[in-house]
Design a protein around this nucleic acid. Structure first.
Lengths: 106, 106
DNA sequence: TTCGTTGGTTTGTATTGCAAACCTGTTTGT
DNA sequence: ACAAACAGGTTTGCAATACAAACCAACGAA
C-alpha cells in the first residue's frame, strides 16, 4: 500500500533538485543549448549553473563542450542518452507518486 | 514558455525532500498516526523521523502531541490545515510541471 | 592604457540529511 | 532486588549540499 508512497524516496536525488530539474528539463526539450541561454532560461546565476552542470556532467547526464564562437568562448551543453533516460524515469516516478497520492484519498 | 518549467524552483523545499514528502503524504491519508506507525510506514530511522517531524512542526505543518498509552510514551502526529494546504499545493505544482514537460516535447 | 563586458570557475559559508550515540523510563530474567 | 534488555524517542557528529559572492581571463571600446 504505502510502498507506492515510499517509492518517492528512490527518486534520483541529482534530478530532484529544482535547479537541476529545470536545467535537464530544458535540455530535454532543446537538444542543445549554450551556457548563457541556459542561464537565462533556467533563471540561475552563473556560479550555480556552472556548479550544477559540473555535477550533471560528472554523473554522465550531460555532455559539455567548450568551443569558441569566433574568439569568445562558447559552452555547449546537451543531454546524454543516460540523461534522457534518467529524466524520463524521474518524470515517471513523480507521475506515479502523484497518482498514488490522489487515489489514496478518495 | 519556460516560465512553467521554472516554476518548479518555487516548490516548497520542506515538502520536496523525499523523506518529508512521504511523512506528509501518509499523514494526509490517515489523519493521525503515532511515531512508530509512521516510522514503519515511512521506512525511516527514528532519528531521521524525529528530525523531520521537528522541522515539519516548526513550519506549522504538523501538530505533535506527546501522550502516554498506559505507562509508555506515545507521540501522535497529525497534519495541520496549513500542512494540508501546503501538500495540496505541492502536489499541484508537481502535476503541472509534469504536464508542462510532457506537452513540451510533442 | 584603462575601463567595462562577456563567459564562465572557484571559494566561502550556512544548511542539509543521515547514522550512530545517547537518554529516559519500563519490562524481563534470575 | 537488581542487572540486562528493550521501547520510544532526541541529540550529536559529520560529510555533502546549494547558493552567492568573489574571482579570473580574454576581448572591445575610449
Amino acid at each position: 500500500m504505502s510502498d507506492d508512497i515510499r517509492s518517492i524516496s528512490n527518486v534520483d536525488r541529482l534530478l530532484h533538485e529544482p535547479s537541476r530539474t529545470i536545467i535537464v528539463a530544458i535540455l530535454y526539450a532543446v537538444e542543445s543549448a549554450d551556457f548563457l541561454y541556459l542561464q537565462r532560461e533556467a533563471g540561475l546565476t552563473k556560479g550555480n549553473l556552472s556548479a550544477h552542470l559540473s555535477k550533471l556532467e560528472a554523473a554522465g547526464y550531460v555532455k559539455i563542450e567548450k568551443t569558441y564562437k569566433g574568439k569568445i568562448p562558447l559552452t555547449l551543453c546537451e543531454l546524454t542518452d543516460d540523461g534522457r533516460k534518467a529524466f524520463e524515469e524521474y518524470r515517471k516516478q513523480l507521475q506515479s507518486f502523484i497518482e498514488t497520492v490522489q487515489t489514496e484519498q478518495e
